[in-house]
Structures are given as structure tokens and as C-alpha cells.
């Protein structure tokens, strides 16, 4: 049995997929949606500020948004692995899934770079032109992440 098949036939993956309980697949999927809203929403809020919306908002306290972003990220990393396991043979063989993961990895790298650029250690936060470019890129990458993520819901039909 290959990896995807054995992953999909583990007890947990089978329960998640087939139990019919609203605490199985529906609850995990809802958590995944919630994590997405928190992660993307917090990142977009920061992106908007860096692009000049609400330029009177001081940057220093806004760094707290990264905490929300990381909480959303880890909720979705964990629930994402669970959702993948439940349908591993379908998801693991779909191009759209790999595009989605690529977009998310890129978006997270952009967020990490953005923090380094805007909040350099020991210096006042600032928005150099490169930060604006990263903010614009971040908006587009997350749009792609949501579109391809939603797309995953239709690959079985």
C-alpha cells in the first residue's frame, strides 16, 4: 500500500471521513475556515495599513497582529493535515492542492519577510517601498490561497 492509501485508511482518517458526527469532518472543516479568516484577515489588515490605509495607525502596536496570524496558521496547519488525511488519495493527487500549498507557503514567507522589514530589531518600525511591495504581494497570494482552497471543495464532483 502506498503512503496516501495507508494514511487514508488509518482509524482516525476513517472516523473523520465516515463517522457522520458533526464533531468529525464538519467541526474540523469549520475550524479550518475560522483559522483562515483569522490568519488572512489579520494579514490583510496589516497589508492595508502598510499600503497607506489608516496611515495614522502607529505601527508598533499593530505588530500584535502577527500573534493572531500565527494562531490562525497553526490551527490551519493542524486541521489541514487532518482534512488531507481523510481524503489523502484524492487530495494528494490533485494539481490544485499543490498550487494551494505553494501559494500558502509563499504567503507565509512574505509575512515573515514583511515583519523583518517593517519591525527591524532595535529600531523604530517603518514602511520602506519594499514593505509596500510585500503587502501587495501578500494580498494577492492570500486571494489565491482562498480561491484554490475553496476549489478543493469541488474536486470530487
Amino acid at each position: 500500500m502506498d503512503f496516501l492509501t495507508s494514511l487514508e485508511s488509518t482509524g482516525f482518517a476513517t472516523w473523520l471521513r465516515e463517522s457522520g458526527s458533526i464533531w468529525a469532518y464538519p467541526a474540523v472543516l469549520t475550524l479550518h475556515t475560522t483559522g483562515m479568516g483569522v490568519l488572512v484577515g489579520a494579514n490583510w489588515t496589516l497589508d492595508l495599513r502598510l499600503l497607506g490605509v489608516g496611515s495614522g495607525v502607529p505601527l508598533q502596536p499593530l505588530e500584535k497582529l502577527f500573534r493572531a496570524m500565527w494562531i490562525g496558521f497553526w490551527v490551519n496547519a493542524i486541521t489541514g493535515v487532518m482534512l488531507f488525511a481523510a481524503d489523502a488519495t484524492t487530495k494528494g493527487t490533485t494539481t490544485i492542492f499543490f498550487i494551494k500549498i505553494g501559494l500558502i507557503i509563499a504567503a507565509v514567507i512574505v509575512a515573515v519577510l514583511m515583519r523583518r522589514v517593517v519591525y527591524p530589531r532595535g529600531q523604530q518600525p517603518a514602511v520602506p517601498p519594499i514593505a509596500k511591495a510585500l503587502a501587495a504581494l501578500s494580498i494577492v497570494l492570500w486571494l489565491g490561497g482562498i480561491v484554490t482552497g475553496r476549489w478543493m471543495g469541488y474536486i470530487y464532483q
Partner: peptide, 17 residues
Amino acid sequence: EMLHFIGMSLLLGVIGT
């Protein structure tokens, strides 16, 4: 559905902040 999820993230991020 894609637009609905995009709108949701925007609302949740800005209003939540």
C-alpha cells in the same frame, strides 16, 4: 463561494481588529 470566503476574511480581519 470564493467571493463569500474572501469577504468573510476581510470582515473578520478589519472588524476583529
